[in-house]
């Protein structure tokens, strides 16, 4: 009986989590101007329309540029930051650890606004480039944490052993430290990409004239139920779901190797 209850509960939770996403998919499969479910005729017209529009490409390109840059910079900085977070024991580490996680516990729209004023005070016009910086303020701490989790399972004596066996500092890094860190870097990178790709609250205030995918969707959904909006949402989401599955496989892989 408890087993049955457990299955029921978990199924219910999953159903509720996926119902809205499924709703977007269902809504996209129509060619009517207004939402009337169940559709009288089912159609993939919205998708062909979407692919023929220049705007679709532009939106995805802006989101992609931002997400790729955020990923690259966050992984590099995050790897260094994680070494200080988990690898070395130094005076001030516990303060550093708490300072690093602080931006995660900060309301994102408020952070976006603060950054907007910051750019304005410095005289920098907001664009997709400033959005990269803004995303990183929230995402870099997360990436640092993800890489740190990997580093906590690391015995630094391995480095001493390698040195003892005649490896140079550079060889130690290449042969011992980086291979151990690699799964953490990969999952950290995927986290960075996905969180940047789907971010709405920071983008709204910091992209200026450029528009990312979530921003565009946000501006349309309140006013317009055209199937094209659903179709673009499905395409953007599908890309991120595939990456989401990859991130979890990557994590499992790294855990399997650690274990």
């Amino acid at each position: 009986m408890p087993r049955l209850l457990r299955s029921l509960w978990l199924t219910l939770i999953l159903a509720l989590l996926y119902m809205p996403i499924l709703s977007v998919v269902l809504a996209s499969l129509a060619n009517t101007r207004y939402m009337r479910f169940p559709h009288r005729t089912w159609s993939v017209g919205a998708y062909t329309d979407t692919f023929s529009q220049q705007e679709t490409l532009t939106l995805h390109l802006v989101s992609l540029k931002v997400a790729l840059c955020v990923t690259l910079f966050s992984v590099i900085l995050g790897a260094l930051g994680a070494m200080a977070f988990a690898r070395y024991d130094w005076r001030g580490r516990s303060i550093y650890q708490k300072a690093v996680v602080l931006p995660i516990f900060f309301p994102q729209p408020v952070l976006g606004l603060a950054l907007l004023m910051f750019y304005s005070a410095l005289g920098i016009p907001p664009s997709w480039k400033t959005a990269i910086f803004a995303h990183m303020v929230w995402i870099l701490p997360i990436v640092t944490l993800v890489i740190s989790i990997r580093l906590f399972g690391y015995d630094p004596a391995q480095e001493d052993a390698a040195r003892d066996l005649g490896a140079s500092r550079w060889q130690v890094l290449r042969e011992v430290t980086l291979p151990h860190l690699a799964p953490g870097l990969i999952s950290g990178g995927l986290f960075a990409f996905l969180l940047s790709w789907s971010n709405l609250p920071l983008s709204i205030f910091t992209t200026g004239a450029d528009t990312t995918l979530p921003e565009w969707l946000f501006s349309r959904v309140a006013t317009n139920y055209a199937p094209v909006v659903s179709a673009i949402a499905v395409i953007g989401t599908f890309a991120s779901v595939i990456l989401g599955v990859l991130v979890l496989l990557g994590l499992r892989l790294s855990r399997a190797r650690a274990g």
């Binding site: 999953l14 809504a27 479910f37 659903s230 779901v241 991130v247």
Partner: peptide, 30 residues
């Protein structure tokens, strides 16, 4: 199962909320 529950975190808020409004819409909603 844990993976399936994690996936929606990586779906944009605007998409998920849009989906919810489509689901809850009166009349022609899902």
């Amino acid at each position: 199962l844990t993976g399936l529950i994690a996936v929606p975190i990586f779906v944009s808020e605007s998409v998920r909320l849009f989906g919810m409004s489509l689901f809850l819409m009166p009349g022609g909603g899902i």
